[in-house]
Design a protein around this nucleic acid. Structure first.
Length: 715
DNA sequence: GAGCACTGC
């Protein structure tokens, strides 16, 4: 989309894409290979962060924790690891690590840095994401990884420490498993302002590790002034203050450094009166931009697929033909990949692209050529209710941080304009300055088991950047207790607890896999676990809903959705994993490849845990019992005399319904177990399987007492 | 006969 670049203001194509956003290249010429070393060096020196090189190195030398605040395009992500490397932080067996919340960012930043350093990716510079370890145990000195991967690595080496590693080396050399241990001297946590679940857990742990390993340096990289509270977090100490003063080495209080950004100025406009219908307001804003403003693409932020469809419908209906020359494209994560990629195609001359998007365009991917942003002021956010143990997706007002991030999307190639569909008074006086961190909006079962596996027993007393609610923590402990993962003292049980912690899945799914060992259906359990870990294996496009339903019927099993997944996977294998077979059956081929990736990883882990890989062939009772072993707490019974298919959960007596996408919809068996609940006007159970009620007390005697169930059985 | 913001191991 170089159409909009002003002559003379050309910037290296890569320099501005490392701040969380990932640029998708549409032409092969995007790589800067072919430029000499001098040119790369000149590009580096032009980055704003270059001016701070000495300051950064000084602060890292003298402070345990350095917080770098830098806006988009400052170059901090690609440059700081190189500064550290040049200053010797990766010498004598040490390593520099840099975490990112997203896989694509890890890959693109690592390859950019390798390119700038003139080394082969996977040697001196490498990266690790799930399913992909592009590092070399001997050579890699700068390593990029997702924060989730770093958390997993800490389970093998909680202190990320040298003496531990030497001990491990001794043992593991014999076993030939050296490659997973390494010695970071500096860990840079990037995009900390996003406050993702794993970033927050990581920050809490790193603060703890620092007390044991004072030589370890942390760099926390954040895009917002949220940095101040982050600094306060690292400065606060629950231990005696006096101890810190005496020691030599780096200062314990953290330093904050600001790096200027490189975005262009974005002029912001507000509505004068609050709007009652932000979809209509967005559409009329689009049309008025198109009427009055010079060329440049428009990015519209709405909350979800429904909003986007409605807005596109309104634009299509526009009778004044003002929308001529507009190319309107939807963008959300559920969209098939080919449709998503359309938004990255160049805008034809004389046309204007309008991308109507969810939050996916706020952080996860970057669109070049956007000059106008329309911001409705809302997004869908997850909220967790620990009382009902249900996660809800609700439309909620965004924070000022989000609003600024959205606006910034207009200023990447030239000065832009942002139209906010709320009043300035609202923005200034009512909008909250930052969002609720994910850890305060989530089910914490996985988080708690990870901390337990890292030897942190006092979960309620853990030093979090933002504390989750005690109710949510207690609920997580209850669930883990009922699964037999922790004992009466809230310690991980052996071996069950440790085994479940080892499996990178929701503990209820992991429990299902463990139970499948005795039931002789581990292959089936692993396939089901892999499918459940994806959004959907079905390929759905607008207008083809009926064909999809028909395709589903070809695989439908009377036992329910889990068994249906097994039928799909068997068909996929029998077709020799053919993409045309997937296409014919409305199955997402890329999703099936992912299922295979996850299966491979899980089979490896299962074998390590001593689970024998066995198939039960057609014994679906074994499979249903394995599901029950993990998901007994999600059991439901149909209401007596129910005409509309209402179920009640056994645990909380919540009214729930089978989701229309389930193969058991309208079949309404008496007893079912669900995998998850989606809440809209009704609570819908997604992925449902039939069970026998007598299995429940067998699977969880402490959770279900027979006397509690039997009356219902005969009612 | 209805719907799924976004990540990650």
């Amino acid at each position: 989309m170089s159409t909009f670049w002003k002559p003379g203001t050309e910037k290296p194509r890569f320099v501005e894409d490392e701040e969380g956003g990932v640029l998708f290249y549409t032409s092969a010429s995007s790589s800067s290979s072919g430029h000499g070393y001098a040119s790369v060096e000149r590009q580096r020196q032009r980055l704003p962060v270059y001016k701070n090189r000495t300051a950064i190195l000084y602060l890292v030398e003298t402070h345990a924790t350095t917080i770098v605040v830098g806006e988009t395009g400052s170059g901090k992500t690609t440059q700081i690891p190189q500064f550290l490397k040049e200053a010797g932080w990766a010498d004598s067996g040490r390593m520099i690590a840099c975490t990112q919340p997203r896989r694509l960012a890890v890959q693109s930043v690592a390859s950019r840095v390798a390119e700038e350093m003139g080394v082969k990716l996977g040697e001196e510079v490498g990266y690790t994401i799930r399913f992909e370890d592009i590092t070399d145990a001997e050579l890699t000195r700068v390593k990029f990884l997702t924060d989730g991967v770093l958390l997993r690595e800490m389970m093998d080496d909680p202190l990320l420490s040298k003496y531990r590693i030497e001990w491990h080396l001794l043992v593991f050399t014999l076993l030939g498993l050296i490659h997973c241990f390494w010695v970071p001297s500096v860990i840079m946590v990037d995009e900390a302002h996003e406050r993702s679940l794993s970033t927050d857990i990581l920050l809490g742990l790193l603060k703890k590790i620092q007390r044991r390993r004072p030589e370890l340096r942390l760099i926390i990289s954040s895009a917002t002034i949220e940095a101040k509270s982050m600094a306060a977090f690292f400065n606060s100490s629950r231990r005696l203050q006096g101890r810190d003063v005496e020691g030599q080495g780096p200062k314990k209080e953290s330093a904050i450094l600001s790096v200027e950004g490189r975005g262009f100025n974005v002029q912001t406009f507000y509505v004068e009166e609050p709007v009652s219908d932000y979809i209509r307001a967005a559409v009329s804003t689009i049309l008025s931009i198109h009427d009055k403003e010079p060329m440049g693409d428009i990015l519209v932020f709405l909350t979800g697929k429904d909003d986007i469809d409605a807005a596109m419908q309104l634009l299509a209906e526009d009778s004044h033909h003002r929308n001529q020359g507009l190319i309107v494209l939807p963008l959300y994560s559920g969209l098939p990949r080919a449709d998503q990629d359309l938004v990255f195609s160049p805008t034809p001359r004389g046309k204007r692209k309008v991308i109507i998007s969810t939050n996916i365009a706020e952080t996860s991917l970057t669109l070049e050529g956007v000059v106008y942003v329309v911001d409705c002021g809302f997004s869908k956010q997850r909220f967790y209710n620990p009382i009902t143990d249900i996660e809800n997706l609700v439309v909620a007002p965004i924070s000022m941080d989000s609003a600024r991030q959205r606006a910034g999307r207009a200023g990447r190639v030239r000065p832009g304009k942002c139209y906010r569909l709320y009043t300035e008074e609202y923005y200034v006086n009512e909008m909250s300055s930052d969002g609720v961190p994910e850890i305060q909006r989530s089910n914490l079962v996985s988080c708690v088991i990870q901390l337990k596996a890292l030897g942190i027993d006092n979960i309620l007393g853990f030093d979090w950047p933002s504390s989750p609610s005690p109710e949510a923590l207690i609920r997580a402990l209850e669930v883990l207790y009922s699964l037999g993962v922790i004992d009466d003292d809230a310690k991980l049980t052996s071996p069950t607890g440790f085994q479940i912690a080892e499996i990178p899945l929701d503990p209820m799914v992991s429990k299902m896999i463990l139970a499948s060992n005795d039931l002789g259906c581990s292959e089936e359990a692993i396939t089901i676990a892999a499918v459940l870990s994806l959004q959907s294996i079905w390929y759905s496009t607008r207008g083809s809903e009926k064909e999809l339903d028909e395709a589903k019927l070809r695989f439908a099993a009377a036992e329910g959705d889990h068994v249906t997944f097994l039928n799909v996977y068997r068909g996929y294998v029998e077709s020799n994993k053919s993409s045309s077979w997937c296409h014919r059956n409305h199955i997402n081929y890329h999703a099936m490849k992912k299922v295979d990736d996850v299966r491979k990883q899980l089979r490896r882990i299962a074998q390590r845990l001593g689970i024998s890989l066995k198939s039960c062939d057609h014994d679906m009772q074994a499979v249903r019992k394995a599901v029950t072993a993990g998901f007994f707490s999600n059991a439901c019974r149909i209401e007596a005399f129910s005409h509309n298919g209402a179920y009640k959960t056994i645990r909380g007596s919540q009214e729930v319904y089978i989701h229309p996408s389930s193969v058991l919809f309208r079949v309404n068996p008496k007893w079912v177990i669900y995998h998850s609940i989606v809440s809209t006007e009704r609570q819908y159970m997604r992925n449902v399987i039939t069970i026998e009620p007598s299995w429940l007390p067998e699977a969880a005697p402490h959770f279900y007492h027979r006397q509690q169930l039997d009356p219902r059985l005969h009612s």
